[in-house]
Design a protein around this nucleic acid. Structure first.
Lengths: 330, 330
DNA sequence: AATCTTTAAGAGACCGGTCTCTTAAAGAAA
DNA sequence: TTTCTTTAAGAGACCGGTCTCTTAAAGATT
């Protein structure tokens, strides 16, 4: 009897090509089967790789992904989260624009939905987080550069400050970058390199802005012998700018970049990079979220730290002798 | 009276931090404020750039975007569309895996939702489409190579066939690529270059696969003097493979690639590319869709063709004299 | 002051599912 | 055949909005 009726229903359903309305289902069940993701800019290979990791895990777990770009802008981020919450996503993955502004994130928590932080954590927020070992890697990288005789090492980041100048790590609102700068400064202090702070440059928010910063840096009377780029977009712009100035790497300048983007291995010279497990970062964040969504709602928060590693190629070399004694040169 | 009550309501809403449930709203209005996007692989810079164009337009129009990867796999594409339809997206943007399989797209049309095709059209489907002028550009590029004396020009694409060999443009299911190959073959025929078909290689679906194909191609007794890569991922792998074989560009081999990805300008030599308005492609597709969604539901279908242009750099040069007479060399 | 118009507030149905509870029918046991 | 158990089908409420219709109250008109 059950069979007969079922077959009839199925046949009818097929004839009318009936599709259950997931919206209606979501309304009663309270679950939308959707997770919201807020990233800085999907065009950045860093985020598109991470996004692939997220979508792969989500799909396997039966979730669908809504993507929103914040442009690293807090207001856009707030809007995005508000929209996502209104759409009743089951959980969120956010790559915070500024770690200090967490009011809108509290809102997520208050709504009872789980949240996972991607690449940037926040001490103000006790939630699942996936980051890289930024500080340690920055320390290693800086040590390596110093061992090669570099004393004037510029650090370039897209993170901007109110006056577009760097004074203190506390100015930097993006956690991953702040930790890197802290690591860099620590090592400089330990090796008694004075005024390392003055070599940190903020506001490399676009290839054009980066070009201006790098050009100005390299044309100054006292110029850096090495540059560390905080991501591959900055690294690429710095590479182009140094070439435009006819500088030979690594003779005239040592360049290294965070994120082993595709292009870094095919330049001449190929550029020394910090390999970041970007896909895995996204994957891990999605896994944490999916686990919360299917079971232990209220387990202890987990913080995953994925290791980065230095890939030494040919854009980094010994510093010219003339630059080694910092105090004299200044 | 109205004011008093409204104020009271607003105050109460604020106190309870009330957020309208978009799901419930969607159910009655029949509009979810969401558009579904199906791309091959968000990790590919081509798609991530296009996606940025889409999300920017969508956000401005008040829509939210659900992203799904098909991996250029028809079954995954079908699944994705089914899910999207069940979630009651208002419209879809799809980058078709195979132009001949359109049953699942008919399903979209039957559901009454608008659809826009991105980068790949289908003659079977009368819907809004945004593509590039693939055939003409391929013709230009081929002519240029032939003018430089090239007679053996390999064309590499990720599109695969059943037997992993190319026989006929009809084998190629990705419209943009098929049109390019058609343009390439047309020009070869017009200039009486025999057997151009044998230089088309399919199945460059990953960097590894591409490396195998390129290495085999370049180590054969009769090898191509020029390679055209159908996208920047293939172009990069081909660049690496040729370098691994110690070939000097453009002396030993001319290489050019579709899609002006970032890296193409920083290699040595920089590679000659076809500039594709990728962001604009996404933008245009989203605009077409949004227009349908807000007004002329049933206007005539529009096909937007965005122009590509050749950026000549230094990876393409004259063919070695020895390769110019095809018949003798074979 | 009585009537008509305007405007606001309240009540009810609906969207399309899920879930529980009741009722009816079929099959098993006495 | 009667009674008890099992199982299937049907009815109703609910999720949280939108929308329409009714009712009540305020303001305008003569």
């Amino acid at each position: 009897m059950s069979d007969r009726v079922r077959d009839a229903v199925i046949a009818a359903a097929k004839k009318l090509d009936y599709r259950p309305n997931e919206l209606a289902r979501s309304m009663t069940t309270g679950r939308s089967g959707t997770i919201g993701v807020v990233v800085g800019d999907i065009e950045n290979p860093f985020f598109s790789q991470a996004m692939r990791g997220i979508t792969d895990v989500a799909r396997l777990a039966g979730f669908t992904v809504i993507l929103m770009n914040s442009g690293e802008n807090v207001d856009a981020e707030k809007d995005a989260i508000r929209t996502l919450l209104a759409k009743r996503v089951d959980g969120l993955i956010v790559s915070l624009a500024r770690e200090s502004e967490t009011d809108h994130l509290q809102e997520i928590l208050r709504s009872g939905r789980p949240l996972a932080l991607l690449d940037r954590g926040s001490s103000l927020l006790d939630v699942d987080t996936v980051i890289s070992n930024d500080r340690d890697t920055a320390r290693d990288v800086t040590k390596r550069l110093i061992a090669l005789g570099h004393r004037r090492i510029a650090y370039l980041t897209a993170c901007d400050t109110a006056d577009h100048m760097f004074h203190d790590p506390a100015d930097i609102q993006t956690g991953s970058v702040r930790r890197r700068i802290e690591g860099y400064l620590e090592v400089c202090q330990e090796t008694e390199i004075p005024d390392a702070e003055k070599w940190v440059r903020v506001g490399a928010i676009s290839p054009e802005a980066t070009e201006v910063i790098v050009t100005e840096l390299l044309q100054a009377p006292v110029r850096p012998s090495a540059i560390i780029a905080s991501d591959s977009v900055i690294g690429l712009a710095a590479f182009k700018a140094s070439r435009a100035l006819d500088l030979k790497l690594p003779r005239d300048l040592s360049l290294m970049s965070f994120h082993d983007a595709d292009w870094t291995s095919v330049t001449s010279p190929p550029v020394t990079v910090v390999r970041q497990p970007v896909y895995q970062l996204g994957e891990a964040a999605a896994k944490l979220l999916v686990e919360r969504l299917s079971g232990d709602e209220k387990g202890p928060t987990r913080r995953v730290v994925l290791p980065m590693s230095l890939i030494e190629r040919d854009s980094v070399g010994p510093a010219p002798m003339s630059t080694r004694n910092t105090s004299a040169a200044m």
